[in-house]
Structure formats: C-alpha cells, structure tokens
C-alpha cells in the first residue's frame, strides 16, 4: 500500500426527492489499499459506490480518480475512465444471453476491442484463477449455483486487470464456506493485480478478512474510519453496536410496530 491517493471523495451528496441518502461523504482510497465501507441497509453504501462508478450523478461534491474530476466526465471520457475499474455486483449481474466465457471476456472484447479468440483464452485463464474449469466457460449463467455465479462475476471483474476493483456485498446470499472461498479469492485477486479495492458489506467476517481499512457510513456520512485492526477498539458507540449486531444502541432501525 502506498501513500498515493487513487480516489478522493469529498462532500458527496445525493438525495432522492426529499430523502437525503448521502449527506457529505468524504473518504480516500490509497493505491494498493483494500477499503471496506460498512453500514446498515439504506445507509448509502451502494449509492456511494454507484456515484464513484458514474452509474449515478451526485447532487454535489467531488470525486477525484487519479486526480481527474470524475463527476464532470461524460460519454467517451467516462467510458475511458471505466477501463481503470472492475466491479463485482451483489447479484453477480451476469449477462444471461451470453455463455460464461463471453461474460468474462466481455470487457476485453467490447471495451478494449480484443479479438474473440484471444479474449476467450484470457477468460478461461481467469476462470481458472477463481477455481473454475474451462468446461464452465461453455455453460449459461442460469446453469450455475449462486457461489459459482459470484466466482464468474469475480473473474469478469479482474479480466481486464483493472487498477481499482469495487465489490458490492460480495458474500451476501452465500453459505459461510462459500463466503470464505470468495473472501480468499478477493484477497488473492487484489494482491495478484496490485489493485486498490473498495468493498461495501455488512458482513463483519468478510470485513475483518479483506479490509486494510474500514469506514462506517451512517445516515449518509462517514462517521468513523481507521485501520481494520482498530475496529474492536474504535471508541465509537455506533461502530460497536454495528459490529456486534446489537439491537440496542444509538442506531435505531426504522421498524413499524405491528
């Protein structure tokens, strides 16, 4: 991990109608760092990374990616910037009209203009890197289990060897063993590529395993951020309540009485 900042987010704001989702989010992602953003459902984790990826337009704030202001980019410039990114979606988001190998090779063929034969070889190689054999490449995404779909999505995220990888709830919906397999693969892939990573999750086992640094988001703001080893001694009652999964504490879930 170096001191060079890959992504600097300052004062990020986003509202949907009267609902304020992001209320001035600030954080830095350093080169080679694995940052995990934790927070409850509806706290603004997904919206934060969608703004970073340009999938949503923030209402205010700045997102500097390698020193370039990303909020002002559009069209070809935005697509060009996306070459730096790989993304693992929560539901895998595999293209069900394409076979597995073409899903993995998609960014190489469509994004980088690589010929199909070469892209296919790389796709098979990346499938191997996430523990899937070449025969899986010919299957349709619908024929795979949830864990295999996540692995294929991980292979797709790393296929173009991105500088920054974003993981959206990488272990959600998986059994504990498969979740651990995915965590190990994330650590291996990020290390092998020398990439920086942002993960959003509320899985504390996963957080403890993959994070160099942890940031907690609550009501649209980063309320605590530090190296992962200090999470158990944060001195922040919001963090304490969240990591121990207690119903009592300063975080009150919006539950309607029956």
């Amino acid at each position: 991990m170096s001191d060079r900042v890959k992504i600097a987010v300052r004062g990020l704001k986003k509202s949907f109608g009267s609902k304020v989702v992001l209320d001035g989010v600030d954080f830095d992602l350093h080169e080679g760092e694995s940052l995990v953003i934790i927070g409850g459902s509806g706290s603004g984790k997904s919206v934060t990374v969608k703004c970073v990826l340009g999938l949503m337009e923030p209402d205010a704030g700045s997102i500097l990616i390698d020193g370039v202001e990303a909020t002002r980019l559009a069209g070809a410039e935005r697509l060009g910037l996306m070459h730096k990114f790989g993304m693992l979606f929560q539901g895998a988001a595999l293209f069900d009209s394409l076979p597995v190998w073409e899903n993995v090779a998609f960014g190489l063929i469509q994004g980088k203009g690589m010929n199909r034969a070469r892209a296919r070889d790389i796709a098979i190689q990346k499938l191997g890197a996430v523990g899937l054999g070449p025969e899986v490449g010919m299957l349709s995404p619908a024929e795979l289990s949830g864990g295999m779909q996540k692995r294929v999505a991980l292979a797709r995220a790393i296929a173009a060897e991105p500088e920054i990888i974003v993981f959206d709830e990488p272990t959600t919906g998986l059994d504990p063993i498969m979740a651990d397999v995915i965590n190990d693969l994330i650590i291996k892939c990020v290390k092998d590529l020398g990439a920086s990573a942002i993960s959003i999750t509320h899985d504390m086992v996963s957080t403890r395993k993959i994070a160099n640094r942890v940031a907690m988001i609550y009501k649209g703001r980063i309320i605590w951020s530090d190296i992962a080893q200090r999470i158990d001694h944060s001195g922040n009652q919001f963090v304490d309540q969240f990591i121990h999964g207690r119903a009592d504490g300063p975080i009150q879930m919006e539950i309607r009485a029956l």
Partner: peptide, 20 residues
C-alpha cells in the same frame, strides 16, 4: 429483456465494462 437487465443491474454492469 431490457427491463430484466435493468432490475438485475446488468445494464450497470455494461457501463462498468466500458460499454455504452
């Protein structure tokens, strides 16, 4: 088809793979 791609984030995935 396109609606399903939208709600399952496949359209977002296209953008992240440098494809309009």
């Amino acid at each position: 088809e396109i609606g399903t791609m939208r709600v399952t984030e496949q359209i977002d995935a296209l953008s992240t793979l440098s494809t309009n």
